[in-house]
């Protein structure tokens, strides 16, 4: 299997690349990122890194028909999306949606590419009161005009890929539960990064979160399968929001719902965080856990790795010291 991975300079892209390189049946990985080469990603006989800005359709086309054709790539994993929730505008849209459209169009009649996997998001689902608790692939998507661009772009990219399902290219859309990891655009990571977490009074929804290891494993399973269509990819951790706050060792303060948005806007202005309460309103009130039955049955994916919660700096330091001591002790024995 020869795989091209876009978004390779992000934590998820890196995890996918490392996961694929560990597989004996993956003979080559073409890692594509917008930024310069990440530390630790060294070109070898099995890996090549390219810095490419996919927001230009011509560049995307040339990548697929140039380097990808040269290396006989047969599977494309498109995981490059803009991460900042507050960033808007045409440039962001180009990166989120038009790059997907351009890549799909270029892959359709490609001589070697047969498989296309899109990284999508649990946030594409509309979570009104009628679809709470367990979200299946058939549930309605968020199409309200008031939705933030971050969500609208992801829904459009998801739709664009789903429109290609059934053609010669085997397209699968992996709707990932929220990745709780730094620098991955995780709203929850940002939310839990604060010492005090405000939560809506009277609600304690169930949330499901995904680790990088399980996300990479889901892409591996999908790449080795021929199943097409959308797949929910839940994580191994399903817990109430209050428990997630507790796990991250933060203080939780219940606040009347209407005050949440202004308070988090103020926090963003003062401290510069990326968390948007308006984007997480439905999730923080009604929850929504992805049902991974389809992925389990058709891709053979089952989450196994719990997430690493964002702990306070002193706790991270203590954990690191303990890990170092364990390594030294292990070496001594």
């Amino acid at each position: 299997m020869k795989v091209m991975v876009t978004g390779a300079s992000t934590p998820l892209g890196l995890a996918i690349v490392e996961h694929l390189l560990a597989l004996p049946d993956v003979s080559f990985v073409l890692a594509v990122g917008k930024d310069r080469r990440p530390v630790g990603l060294v070109d070898t006989g099995r890996l090549r890194y390219l810095a490419v800005d996919l927001s230009h359709a011509r560049v995307a086309h040339d990548l697929v028909w140039g380097d990808a054709r040269l290396h006989l790539i047969n599977t494309v994993i498109h995981a490059a999306q803009h991460r900042g929730a507050h960033d808007t505008g045409r440039g962001v849209h180009l990166q989120n949606v038009e790059s997907t459209r351009a890549l799909l169009a270029a892959c359709e009649d490609h001589p070697s590419i047969r498989r296309f996997l899109l990284r999508s998001f649990a946030e594409v689902y509309a979570t009104p009161h009628t679809t709470t608790q367990l979200l299946v692939e058939d549930d309605p998507l968020e199409l309200s005009p008031g939705a933030p661009q971050w969500v609208r772009d992801r829904v459009e990219a998801d739709f664009t890929a789903c429109a290609h399902v059934g053609g010669t290219l085997k397209v699968a859309v992996l709707r990932l539960a929220e990745l709780v990891a730094p620098d991955s655009g995780s709203q929850l990571w940002d939310y839990l990064g604060s010492r005090v977490c405000l939560r809506p009074l009277g609600y304690d929804p169930m949330i499901n979160v995904l680790s990088l290891e399980d996300a990479a494993e889901a892409f591996r399973a999908a790449a080795q399968s021929t199943a097409i269509g959308p797949f929910n990819i839940p994580g191994a951790d399903t817990l109430p929001l209050t428990r997630a706050i507790e796990e991250s060792q933060r203080f939780s303060i219940p606040v009347p719902g209407p005050l949440m948005s202004p308070m988090y806007r103020l926090r963003r202005r003062v401290a510069g965080f990326d968390f948007r309460y308006d984007m997480n309103f439905a999730r923080f009130h009604f929850g929504g856990v992805l049902d991974g039955t389809r992925a389990r049955e058709q891709l053979g994916y089952a989450p196994r790795h719990p997430v690493h919660w964002p702990h306070p700096w002193w706790r991270e330091l203590l954990d690191r010291l303990a890990a170092d001591r364990a390594t030294v002790d292990g070496a001594r024995h």
Binding site: Q133, D204, M206, D237
Partner: peptide, 10 residues
Amino acid sequence: DAGYGFDVFG
């Protein structure tokens, strides 16, 4: 148990 003493529905 979904892992934290709750099932997926809470």
